[in-house]
Amino acid sequence: MQFEADELSEVVVRLRRAQGQIGGVIQMIENGRDCKDVITQLAAASRALDRAGFKIIATGLEKCVTDEETDAAEVEANRKQMEKLFLTLA
């Protein structure tokens, strides 16, 4: 399944945020910051990545359901693929 760039603009924002958070984690480690602070920031980056992944899956599912040009067999195959991807993230 292919996406248009504008369909995933929110995902790009989330990924850029996660990219900044990961850079912050690296800097915190290099600066010898407290373990608790590092883990807290790392957890935030992890959540941002998870949310980006789930948004991609939700967009894919929505596209499967609303695409009138897709036949029933392809819709089912796409749905199964999205389900498998969801379980990969879960």
Rank of each mutant, 00 (worst) to 15 (best):
L42E: 03
D67G: 02
A90S: 12
E7F: 01
C64S: 14
S46N: 11
K80N: 14
L85A: 15
A72Q: 13
A90W: 05
C35S: 04
T88V: 10
I22R: 04
D37M: 05
L87R: 15
L49V: 10
K63H: 07
L87I: 08
E74M: 07
F86S: 14
M1F: 07
L89H: 04
R14T: 02
I56W: 08
Q41Y: 02
G53H: 03
M28A: 04
V13I: 11
G32M: 01
F3C: 08
A58G: 08
N31S: 13
M82F: 12
I29K: 05
R47A: 06
I57R: 11
R17Y: 05
L8K: 05
F86H: 14
V38S: 02
Q2E: 15
L61R: 06
L85T: 03
F3M: 09
K63R: 12
K36T: 05
L89I: 07
T59Q: 14
F86Q: 13
E4I: 00
I57W: 09
T40M: 09
L61M: 15
E62D: 12
F54Q: 07
K80L: 13
F54H: 06
A52L: 08
Q41G: 00
A52C: 07
S9P: 00
A72R: 12
I57D: 11
N31R: 10
D50G: 02
V12M: 14
C35R: 08
R51S: 12
E69N: 14
R79E: 06
G32Q: 01
D50P: 00
R14V: 02
D71T: 04
E83R: 14
C64F: 00
L42A: 11
T70R: 15
I26W: 06
V25T: 01
S9G: 01
L85Q: 08
A72Y: 08
E76A: 12
K63P: 01
D50E: 13
M1C: 06
A73V: 09
T66I: 09
L85I: 07
A43V: 01
E83S: 12
V38N: 02
A72F: 09
T70M: 15
E83I: 13
S9L: 10
L89C: 07
V11I: 13
R33D: 11
T59K: 15
Q27L: 01
A58Q: 14
A48Y: 00
I26V: 15
G53Y: 07
E62V: 04
E69K: 14
D71Q: 07
I29Q: 04
V12S: 14
Q2A: 11
